[in-house]
């Protein structure tokens, strides 16, 4: 608005004209984001417990840089500052949880700035980003500093003094070699294995997911179809002569799969809005994860899979558009109905 322009002579504001919906639940962005933060907290706390103070530092740097980047980017672009909605904090925390505790400390900072400034703000800010900012930043970091991003130390290694940062193979690296990981299934499920800070504890991530489901922050379609597809494919096509069931279980419990399926793929902005669309989207993610894990160059494919499916969200929404009341489905109906855009 231009303050120099004379306002039209005081018009009485009697009616508020707005498009539907008129009845709203009291759901705000900040409430949703706080719920996501609550759901992420147990897994993050476990990550800090398992990988030591260094993990806490990585998480802290990531969140702080995300908030700072959001503030600066919005100031520079002359947009209203939206720090209070918590979305930048969620992005920062998700990014931090997707990093190993042993990354050089510039990695969370650069990643958070890339996520917020480039992937989110340059595309128009909250609600307008095409890809999940935290994941896009993770992939950017992965391509930029592959060496720094793929150093993992064993859990609780920081407790045994004297030895610093015992490098440890992640369960995924073993799976990539066609072997079952050294860690037992219980270790994988509870999070006693090497990996990124927030991805190791499947139990706590699932608990967070159940919380989000109960609070109706996320719907079941994406996590279920995502994990289901991976489960099905790894059960039908186990690798390296392993026992089907244990291979499937190990595949489901290792890497960032659960974190991705519950917290990343379900991001509102970058996932389809229709139920059927969400099912297809989840299946696509699962399919791509298995393909990348089996045939790709990287041991983990969750980030790439979700980003690729993010790019298809618009198409999935178009494909699964529900029938407009009073019209027949399909092209002809649309034309009759006066060209639905």
């Amino acid at each position: 608005m231009n303050p120099n322009q004379p306002q039209p002579a005081s018009m009485p504001e009697l009616l508020t004209v707005s498009p539907s919906p008129h009845a709203r639940r009291g759901v705000t962005t900040s409430r949703l984001m706080i719920d996501v933060l609550i759901a992420l907290a147990p897994a993050a706390v476990w990550g800090v417990a398992a990988f030591g103070p260094r993990a806490a530092l990585v998480l802290l740097l990531s969140v702080a840089s995300a908030l700072l980047a959001e503030f600066l980017a919005e100031k520079l672009l002359r947009r209203p500052v939206t720090l209070r909605d918590g979305s930048a904090a969620v992005t920062g925390l998700l990014l931090g949880m997707n990093l190993s505790a042993d990354v050089p400390l510039y990695i969370p900072v650069v990643g958070a700035v890339f996520a917020i400034a480039v992937v989110k703000q340059l595309f128009g800010g909250i609600g307008r980003n095409v890809m999940n900012p935290a994941l896009a930043a993770r992939v950017f970091l992965m391509l930029a500093w592959t060496g720094g991003m793929t150093r993992f130390s064993a859990p609780f290694a920081y407790l045994s003094s004297g030895v610093d940062a015992v490098a440890s193979a992640t369960p995924l690296a073993s799976l990539k070699g066609g072997m079952l990981p050294d860690a037992s299934l219980a270790d994988l499920f509870l999070g006693r294995c090497a990996g990124c800070i927030g991805e190791v504890s499947v139990l706590l991530l699932l608990a967070g997911g159940v919380y989000l489901l109960v609070r109706r922050v996320i719907s079941w379609q994406i996590p279920v179809s995502f994990l289901g597809t991976v489960a099905l494919l790894t059960f039908v096509f186990p690798q390296g002569g392993a026992d089907r069931l244990s291979f499937m279980a190990a595949s489901l419990c290792s890497g960032g799969l659960v974190l991705g399926a519950v917290f990343m793929a379900t991001d509102y902005v970058t996932s389809p809005v229709t139920g059927a669309g969400r099912l297809i989207y989840g299946c696509g993610c699962g399919l791509l994860v298995v393909f990348i894990r089996y045939f790709g160059g990287y041991p983990e494919g969750v980030s790439f899979a979700i980003l690729i499916m993010n790019a298809l969200v618009w198409y999935l929404d178009m494909l699964t558009r529900p029938r407009v009341y009073g019209k027949t489905r399909g092209r002809r109906g649309d034309r009759k109905g006066g060209g639905q855009a």
Binding site: P104, F140, L143
Partner: peptide
């Protein structure tokens, strides 16, 4: 300075 290899790769070209 840690080289950001991504800028030598196609994604870096597009960015």
């Amino acid at each position: 300075y840690p080289d950001m290899v991504v800028f030598l790769l196609p994604p870096g070209a597009f960015l």
